[in-house]
Design a protein around this nucleic acid. Structure first.
Ligand SMILES: [Mn+2]
Ligand SMILES: [Mn+2]
Ligand SMILES: [Mn+2]
Ligand SMILES: [Mn+2]
Lengths: 220, 220
DNA sequence: TAAATAATTTAGATTCGCCTAAATTTTTAT
DNA sequence: ATAAAAATTTAGGCGAATCTAAATTATTTA
């Protein structure tokens, strides 16, 4: 299939993939912003990736992944999330500490390593942040999840993901409130004054959380 | 201490370290041979590493690691061997399959990751090839080992290392004869005609091994 | 010790990945 | 519909890491 891709190329492909989740065609500036680089550098790379057939690109028209490119992206994301799972489950890292390390580990090339790691971990379906881990065929079990903000009162739900998962402040707060992936939540009241809400969790605790925290939590 | 080192720089430092085990000053050509590159490229890199103070280098005079460079080398080797141990013990790789993968994993930078991995693995002292794993302070428990070729008749010894550990032919042979790191061996007879020898192992098996195999085995 | 040979370095290119500044194209606002 | 603003690309350059070919230095051999 595709020859060897550099770490930089892989990071671009992954970024384009993620940006495509919201809008199917991605702009040069968006890629630049996500990768903390300059638009001119992005244009450079897009030309290269285009000639390698992993993206569709025409100047001034934005970029999207080719079928091949999407496969590559999913493979990198699979590795990223499996390693994050490993770091948390086996090496006892906290979930706010693993992203940077996985950012490096995701580029280790051995196919066999990924498969064996997956098997060793027991084929986990979600990473420590609640994001789905693609299987070895590249299939992703998308979960329809909604922001806790949009959950109906009195309707029980389970925390499925946390956004802003690199923030240790967020982790501190969630640890204090004893909330994590898998926690059952019911909204008891919503206060329109500050958009805070009173919730009840698993362990029969009832307390109030802020609008900010509610927006960081996704449930299903 | 030292800023960030690239993968290429780390590989050069590690190679110089290994070459220094036999002779304290290493030549440009030796480095080139070990890294499968050209002498001109090595000269280039030596200038860079010299300016970063990790080696001592004067033109036409060969190269050696600085104190700082040696610490870096040992740290990379520690990571390499810990990952090899992980791959064999946890992911069930055979010991002839792990070197290439560890060659990539050894460049993952997180200090915390190494320490936690070491702890997770139970602070192993030797890698799957019998080579010592440096501890977190960089201390290496050297073992005086000798080639099986040089072992005295009737003197029991334990296989401590296998050289040529990337060869699957060697692994095949050792698996067949049921020899591995830790196997107890006694030499019963040496045949000077072809330098083969009759040995007895753990499991009370007695059989003959070739000169070639004896040279690949180290014991203590 | 002088010539031949081997080892090493220098010179000059190339590719990748990035940058700044300038030019061009597209989009938005008047 | 123009002009202003924003987005994007091009031009030109730089450092890292590699290469080949040529020049230089060191070592060996006659
Ligand atoms: Mn990455
Ligand atoms: Mn994640
Ligand atoms: Mn390496
Ligand atoms: Mn090893």
């Amino acid at each position: 299939m595709t020859e060897h891709l550099s770490t930089a190329e892989e990071n671009y492909i992954k970024s384009i993939y993620h940006l495509q989740q919201s809008e199917s065609v991605v702009s040069t500036n968006e890629v630049a912003a996500r990768l903390n680089t300059k638009a001119a550098s992005v244009t450079d790379m897009l030309k290269r990736l285009n000639s390698k057939q992993v993206i569709h690109y025409e100047k001034y028209k934005g970029v999207s992944l080719s079928i091949e490119g999407e496969k590559i992206a999913i493979d990198i994301i699979r590795k990223h999330r499996l390693w994050e799972y490993f770091l948390v489950e086996k090496l006892q890292f906290k979930w706010d500490e693993v992203h940077e390390i996985a950012e490096e580990l995701e580029h280790i090339s051995s196919k066999q390593l990924v498969e064996r790691l997956d098997n060793y971990l027991g084929y986990p379906k979600f990473d420590p942040h609640g994001d789905p881990i693609p299987d070895s065929k590249g299939h992703i079990q998308f979960q329809e999840q909604i922001s806790l903000t949009d959950l109906t009162i009195e309707k029980p739900a389970t925390v499925s993901a946390v956004v802003g998962s690199q923030s240790s402040e967020l982790l501190e707060l969630l640890t204090h409130k004893n909330i994590g992936i898998g926690t059952r939540i019911v909204i008891k009241r919503k206060f329109s004054y500050d958009n805070s809400m009173e919730i009840e969790t698993n362990d029969n605790c009832t307390f109030t959380i802020s609008k900010e925290l509610a927006m960081a939590l996704f449930v299903r």
